[in-house]
């Protein structure tokens, strides 16, 4: 049942086509998890469900800025793509309230390096 190179490229095209316009990525390596990424991820998931949003949320690896974990990267239409660092439950709620819903960047937690 081996795959051929053409099938490989077909998977690539299909995945790229499916890529959503709005998404959230949570740093979910050991550094992120140790800093509390699990809790943040759960809050974000609940909020997305509660608000009935079409927003993809993904657990990703470490982008390298370990001192600012948990890191959440947000890209929604109508607002610039940014990293939020040292995110906790409250900030996660704020991100959903202000950034995702009102397209306003959240004060005091952006890491733009």
């Amino acid at each position: 049942m081996g795959m051929t190179k053409d099938q490989l490229l077909a998977i690539k095209d299909e995945t790229l086509k499916k890529q959503p316009a709005s998404w959230i990525r949570v740093g979910y390596s050991t550094c992120g998890v140790a800093a509390g990424a699990k809790e943040v991820y759960e809050v974000l998931c609940e909020e997305i469900k509660a608000r009935n949003l079409t927003l993809e949320i993904k657990k990703c690896g470490c982008v390298g800025l370990c001192s600012a974990e948990p890191l959440v990267e947000v890209n929604v239409e109508g607002a610039p793509r940014v990293f939020y660092g040292k995110v906790n439950k409250e900030i996660a709620h704020k991100i959903m309230d202000e950034h995702v819903s009102q397209k306003k960047l959240v004060d005091g937690h952006i890491y733009d390096i």
Partner: peptide, 26 residues
């Protein structure tokens, strides 16, 4: 080396294939 770290879902092979994964071995 860190080209995909923090960008793709490490548990999704489709995500890796979408960023030209497994084309090196091909």
């Amino acid at each position: 080396v860190l080209r995909n770290c923090g960008i793709i879902d490490p548990e999704s092979i489709e995500d890796y294939i979408a960023v030209n994964g497994y084309q090196g071995i091909a």
